[in-house]
Simulated scan of single mutants.
Amino acid sequence: MHAFDASAPLPTRLLTDPAMIAACAARDVGAVFRLAKTVGLYHSRIARLCEMTPSRVADYVEGRVCAQRHTVLERVADGLRIPGAMLGLAPRDWESARSRVSSQAGEYGTGEGSLPDPRLTRGLNPRSRTVRLGLFTQAVIETSRAVDIDIDTRGRAVVRVRENVHNLGAHPVTRLHHDFWFERTVGRFDVRLSHGVGSGDGQRLERLHDTSTLSKFVVCLPEPLTPGDTARIEYVCTGGVFDDRLFWRQTIARPTEQLWLRVRHRGPQRIDACTAVQEHHDGGETPVGTRVDRAPGVTELNVIRSHLMPGEALVLRWHRDEPPAR
């Protein structure tokens, strides 16, 4: 076990970088080492810190080997001072030591290595990987996001998004950035807030940039979202159209506890194939199971994923059973 060293090898700005968060979530030791090199840690230094040989570090960096053993991840976490939560490990012994000597960030004690204040995590599972990463990065997380896509017989779509956000940071939040994209649109492409049951009245949508297929906007909250508080946001997008390219790519902007993607495709043609993958920050992909329900005139596709990191995406593709050419 490494002795505690107050001067951590990796700066906080790198530990909170989406690329590092994604690499750790995927337990991609090679990607972690490559990112460490960007702040001046080279093979020999990484090798000493992580109790490896320089040639072994090079194997990870070049992608010739992958971490298979739990003990390797523990040595990487302890050597580079990466919090255990980021690598899916239990909190490391040095994390509690750091909390005694590090400065606290704000009233709620969300500084690096500090123990979470129960006021921040009320209503949440403090052992959740998403929650622990949100605490470390002092982020607003999405405890749930539901994306409901309804496609009519002409291919025109109405997309309803419902998200519950929770502030795990040290400061109140009043603005939440969003963007929405369609590959093809017809008529007016529009995004508007929908004040459903439980969503906050008085929310306001501020448009930042609009094109025929893209909308960047901010949801302005009527009252500051203070640390430990939750808000519900709902919005509806119209004008998108699906033709021969039937897919949906849901990008992840904030740590997300659970994502539910549902597509209802109406029409007489049968949906004969459906695939889904989770795209990782390093370019890797993980196949994802889907559920297909069929009824006369409509096919419903459902995908649910948990613990998604910024920079990742969930991609769903489906195909219609085209009638044979005459």
Rank of each mutant, 00 (worst) to 15 (best):
W248Y: 14
P83C: 10
N125V: 05
I252W: 05
D59F: 07
A139W: 01
M20V: 10
E74F: 06
V236R: 12
A31W: 04
I271S: 04
R245N: 09
A8L: 13
T71I: 08
A47R: 06
L10M: 03
K216L: 12
R270I: 06
E223Q: 13
S114D: 03
L133D: 07
I271P: 00
T143E: 08
R232T: 04
T71K: 08
P126E: 14
R13K: 14
G297Y: 11
C24Q: 03
V186S: 15
D293I: 04
D293A: 13
P172G: 09
T143S: 15
E112L: 09
V263S: 03
S55Y: 04
G289Y: 03
E223G: 01
V315W: 06
H319K: 11
T71L: 12
P118C: 04
R270Y: 10
L14A: 08
L193M: 10
L214T: 15
D272H: 15
R232M: 10
D321M: 09
R127L: 15
R69N: 13
Q269T: 10
M309A: 11
G202Q: 11
V173S: 01
A23L: 04
N125T: 09
A146E: 02
R92F: 08
H281K: 01
A313D: 03
T130P: 06
L176E: 04
D93R: 13
A139Q: 11
R184L: 11
V72P: 03
R160C: 11
F217Y: 15
C237M: 14
E107A: 05
S114Q: 13
N302S: 08
T185M: 06
N167R: 03
P268R: 12
L246F: 08
T299S: 14
L115T: 14
M309F: 04
W260N: 08
S212T: 14
A31H: 06
